[in-house]
């Protein structure tokens, strides 16, 4: 979403225009849902929590001062909401296998497909905050500075943590033998 248009939508929302807020929701719903879903791992709960994120954003929109990107502010709400939810319950298995199947339709993709499934299983071993870090960096293409704004980590800490996560995932994938070997 264009930044000028986004600011316009925020101003109109503050004046009570729900259609403008709907435009903001449409622009960010998939990214917010992906982040929340990767953290809580349950589609139904993620859907409800993602809606909660937008309701919280609506209630506190007047406190948004345009010092950071709107998306950074919104993802921070999403990150905190989802992490809080994980503290109240045990996490289920990582349910990414279905999504992996959808992208593995290239002809030479059998081993890549298996690697993705192994990666999904390895992600399931990570703490929710680490999964969020991976999601923000690799899936949502956020800069390290934005990730720090969202998660509250310092820049060196975030970089070190991401490096360790990569290393850990790689180690876990190396340990898993492929089926066709």
């Amino acid at each position: 979403m264009d930044e000028v248009f986004e600011k316009n939508c925020i101003d109109r929302t503050l004046r009570g225009d729900h259609a403008a807020f709907a435009a903001l929701v449409n622009a960010h719903k998939d990214d917010v849902f992906t982040l929340v879903f990767r953290i809580v791992r349950q589609r139904g709960q993620a859907e409800e929590l993602a809606q909660d994120v937008f309701l919280k954003a609506f209630k506190h929109l007047s406190s948004f001062r345009h010092k950071a990107k709107f998306s950074t502010w919104l993802y921070r709400i999403a990150f905190n909401t989802a992490i809080s939810a994980t503290r109240k319950q045990a996490l289920p298995e990582y349910p990414i296998a279905e999504a992996v199947l959808q992208v593995s339709d290239e002809p030479d993709d059998t081993s890549r497909h298996r690697q993705l499934q192994a990666l999904a299983a390895a992600l399931g071993q990570l703490p929710p905050a680490d999964v969020a870090l991976v999601t923000l960096f690799y899936t949502e293409n956020r800069s390290m500075e934005e990730i720090c704004g969202i998660t509250g980590l310092s820049l060196p800490n975030a970089k070190v943590r991401l490096h360790r996560i990569r290393h850990k995932l790689r180690e876990q994938l190396i340990k898993q033998p492929l089926d066709d070997e």
């Binding site: 990214d31 917010v32 849902f33 999504a99 992996v100 890549r112 993705l116 990666l119 033998p177 070997e181």
Partner: peptide, 26 residues
């Protein structure tokens, strides 16, 4: 030999698909 040793973890992580919110989400 385990072919997994040749994995490019960055490329794999980038291929993890984003999720889609439900149609009636908004």
């Amino acid at each position: 030999m385990n072919k997994n040793k040749n994995i490019d973890i960055d490329a794999l992580l980038r291929r993890l698909p984003a999720e889609k919110a439900g149609d009636d989400f908004t």
